[in-house]
Design a protein around this nucleic acid. Structure first.
Lengths: 154, 154
DNA sequence: ATCATTGCAAAAGCTTTGCATAAGA
DNA sequence: TCTTATGCAAAGCTTTTGCAATGAT
């Protein structure tokens, strides 16, 4: 299997773009910690390593990484996009805590059937799906139950 | 079944807020055309009827309508949120064309099972899910195929 | 009479963009 | 050498907010 860097270089070349240290440092940082991230976090992580890469470059690079399938937009929460590295990972969905933002990843094979049916029924060429289940994680749920209990006795 | 207006008034009263014409005009317009909308569209629709309601009031009212379950955020596309009226409608998911934005609504009963499993497995209190399948509608798919075909012969 | 709500304009926050400089190819 | 990419700062957009005036209770 090709490495992310190989994929990215091939993509950059194929589009007639240029291989730059900034682009590769951004990709390397995303791959180093295979976690969800947003632009600001990524910027601060790079800056913390004395890699002075501007936010403008990050904003210009992320769409390239999305286009070549190395990362994807996960969701738009708190006024900005969150991304995740996806290359080499099985496709997964998210379970998000509406209170603390904790995310559980899970696979859901039944969605392949859903896609196939939609394609047949509506004539769409299906590209992908995004499923996010939302609720309260055990920790936050407990906290809010405790709060409710307290409210009763006021 | 209660009307949307009744639900809203009850909600407003229960929170100690005030029943204002602006809030009710916004709700009425959303219910009049039971379609997807965004803030700007709604603002222009109201303005077209000589109902001069400020965007600030719209931005302040929508979260109330979400909170009392009359509307919901559908997705964040083109830099802003899209909403839809949901009260009295069966829960549904969306199939969106990545090119023209066309939306097909569909019901997917299998997701109830997915929610139940997640709740059991991870201890989350599940509130809701958002599933969006993305692809190209027959019309846009055809156009892009034609374009590709053309490119071959250049 | 209170105090929440409105409209306006300003501010805030994320993202994009123009431009001069730097640097791949 | 030619052209793309970078960094900075400014601009663009959507959304939020402060404030004086208005209006609901």
């Amino acid at each position: 299997m090709q490495t992310e860097l190989e994929i990215f270089r091939e993509f950059i070349r194929s589009k007639g773009l240029r291989q730059t240290p900034e682009r590769e440092i951004i990709l390397a940082e995303i791959c180093r910690k295979r976690e969800h991230f947003d632009v600001d976090e990524l910027f601060l992580r790079l800056r913390g390593q004395d890699k002075k890469i501007s936010k403008a470059s990050i904003y210009r690079t992320l769409p390239l990484l999305v286009e070549c399938g190395l990362i994807r937009e996960v969701n738009f929460v708190d006024g900005h996009w969150h991304y995740e590295q996806i290359y080499g990972q099985p496709h997964h969905c998210h379970l998000r805590c509406l209170s603390c933002g904790a995310m559980v990843e899970f696979e859901e094979p039944r969605l392949a059937a859903v896609e196939a049916e939609l394609s047949r029924k509506h004539g769409y060429q299906i590209i992908k799906h995004v499923l996010e289940v939302q609720g309260y994680c055990p920790h936050c749920h407990q906290k809010s139950s405790a709060r409710d209990e307290e409210a009763k006795h006021v």
